[in-house]
Design a protein around this nucleic acid. Structure first.
Length: 253
DNA sequence: TGCCATTGTATGGACCTTCG
DNA sequence: CGAAGGTCCATACAATGGCA
């Protein structure tokens, strides 16, 4: 069985069994859910490189060319998109397949250090962005301000639609979204939908910011992959909401 | 004078808050 | 609500300064 399949099924088992997320500290907003996913990978017996703060994807498997990027979201809360600061989502990074693990959990309550996973989506990175060529780079320069000593960071903060916003039928359940050509091996996985994402006609290649008018202009070029359809399939764990179908929502413009 | 420990700066991750 | 603006701070990397 493919590693993602194992990880997904274990996540769903843990969610359904009510294995709780443990808050690390009062101010922790990034490790609690990551740790929960780490325990799942561990439960699968998969070896991984320890995630650091600036590693991408968070968990990199040692014996499979595969990695998992973890995103925790409060529920109810922000649903349409998530901040992907300085990291464009991709389905392939350094020769590794990248899967995103989105998990939603209840809003933090004072004095409550354990809480359940409401729902989750494991999706291939290419579902969020099909491109693998773009290389992200932040640049900065000094010289701004009356004294010329202020540094400006051109820090691109990518804001990406969440799979919950992209695909209807994902709320309250656990869903795996994989490329259509991905060979599912586990009989525990039931297909619950097909999702086709179509590439746009023009891609953004640059932008300029005028600091006097605060105008920003973007420049586009024809997309060599215009019209290409990227096909995905949604799966659920057998018996766990496998009659509820998943379909792409109307895209936002 | 080369090595290492310490300090400083840049980068990146992950939310939160406010306003229209 | 969602978009824009903001906060916090852990790390990576660079610079500095003792000291054998």
């Amino acid at each position: 069985m493919g590693a993602v399949e194992q990880v997904f099924l274990e996540c769903e088992r843990a969610r359904a069994d009510g294995d709780l997320i443990q808050r690390v500290s009062a101010s922790d907003k990034e490790y609690h859910f990551q740790n929960w996913v780490g325990e799942r990978i561990e439960a699968c017996g998969l070896a991984y490189d320890e995630p650091g703060r600036n590693t991408y994807p968070d968990f990199r498997l040692v014996n499979h060319p595969e990695g998992y990027e973890v995103k925790g979201l409060e529920f109810p809360g922000r649903e349409a998109d998530y901040d992907s600061n300085s990291q464009v989502p991709t389905g392939n990074h350094n020769g590794r397949e990248v899967f995103y693990v989105f998990g939603r959990y209840p809003k933090a309550e004072r004095g409550v250090d354990e809480y359940p996973v409401v729902d989750l989506v494991v999706c291939h990175g290419s579902f969020l962005n099909a491109d693998t060529d773009y290389v992200h780079k932040n640049k900065s320069f000094r010289g701004f301000g009356s004294y010329g000593d202020i540094l400006i960071r051109d820090r691109k903060m990518y804001v990406v639609p969440t799979p919950f916003a992209l695909a209807a039928g994902t709320a309250g359940l656990a869903t795996l979204i994989a490329p259509a050509d991905y060979q599912v091996q586990s009989s525990e996985l039931v297909q619950v939908g097909e999702l086709n994402r179509v590439e746009i006609d023009e891609v953004l290649v640059s932008y300029e910011f005028n600091m006097q008018t605060n105008e920003m202009v973007t420049h586009k070029e024809p997309n060599p992959n215009a019209g290409i359809v990227h096909q995905f399939r949604a799966y659920r764990s057998r018996g766990a909401g496998d009659t509820k179908t998943v379909a792409l929502k109307e895209p936002r413009s």
